[in-house]
């Protein structure tokens, strides 16, 4: 068995005393998996990704990435798409590509340019002139063009049209390799579930239910989308 890409051991995080967002959270990601991290609003999905990316510091517990304790060092293994854009809108797409190239040794410019071309995005355009959906596409392209070990995509398809959604999902499949893993959070479960190996339903800062996506469909005779609606019925 090869080393897990990610191990979260008894993670805790609260923004306000006595109100834990993550509570003794354990989570392991093996290599070569595409994992859907699914859960109702406010269940702690984005907080978890921010902790792994190092944007937040856990109150207790430990995060290990590719066998190394979370640090500056582990950031180079992680390609993270945050829920909100973090780029300067003054840049052009071309400038963003140079920025990524400079910043990340594993960035593959050719792949990025091919994807921009496929989605009809002009690299000369200024980011601020792009529509919301196109901005999201550009960010996702940059994140997916790195040769990382762990991709963390926080709501990658929420704002984009269905055709681009298909393209993005096929990019994730095409990018698939045995050494890397992808964590995707989304509310559009039906769209992504055929792409997943595993799923985890998160609720109140813990894993509520998890397993092999396709086996679960078979066992319950339901899609993950239907199962989610049942488990989290309001």
């Amino acid at each position: 068995m090869s080393e897990p890409i990610l191990v979260c051991d008894k993670l805790c995080k609260s923004y306000k005393k006595g109100v834990p967002v993550l509570n003794n959270f354990d989570f392991t990601v093996e290599p070569g998996r595409i994992i859907g991290l699914l859960g109702p609003n406010g269940c702690g999905k984005s907080t978890l990704l921010k902790l792994i990316a190092g944007l937040l510091v856990p109150d207790c517990g430990e995060i290990t990435v590719c066998g190394i304790k979370r640090s500056e060092e582990t950031n180079k293994y992680i390609s993270y798409l945050p829920e909100r854009p973090y780029f300067s809108t003054r840049m052009s797409v071309d400038e963003m590509i140079s920025f990524f190239k400079e910043f990340y040794a594993d960035f593959d410019e050719l792949i990025a340019r091919k994807m921009l071309f496929d989605l009809g995005i002009n690299p000369k355009s200024q980011v601020k002139t792009l529509s919301k959906g196109t901005k999201e596409k550009v960010q996702l392209i940059l994140v997916m063009s790195r040769r990382a070990k762990l991709y963390m995509l926080d709501e990658p398809i929420g704002g984009v049209d269905p055709a681009a959604r298909d393209y993005i999902l096929s990019t994730i499949i095409g990018n698939y390799n045995e050494e890397a893993s992808v964590i995707i959070t989304t509310h559009l479960i039906a769209d992504i579930e055929p792409v997943l190996n595993d799923f985890a339903f998160m609720y109140q800062g813990k894993i509520h239910m998890s397993g092999d996506a396709d086996e679960t469909r078979n066992t319950y005779g339901k899609s993950l989308d239907q199962l989610f609606r049942e488990v989290f019925r309001c």
Binding site: S170, A190, P194, R217, N218, G221, K222
Partner: peptide
Amino acid sequence: MSWRFDPGSSVSGQ
């Protein structure tokens, strides 16, 4: 591209 799967059973079976 991706086809619509019957939600009630495994994708691999389909």
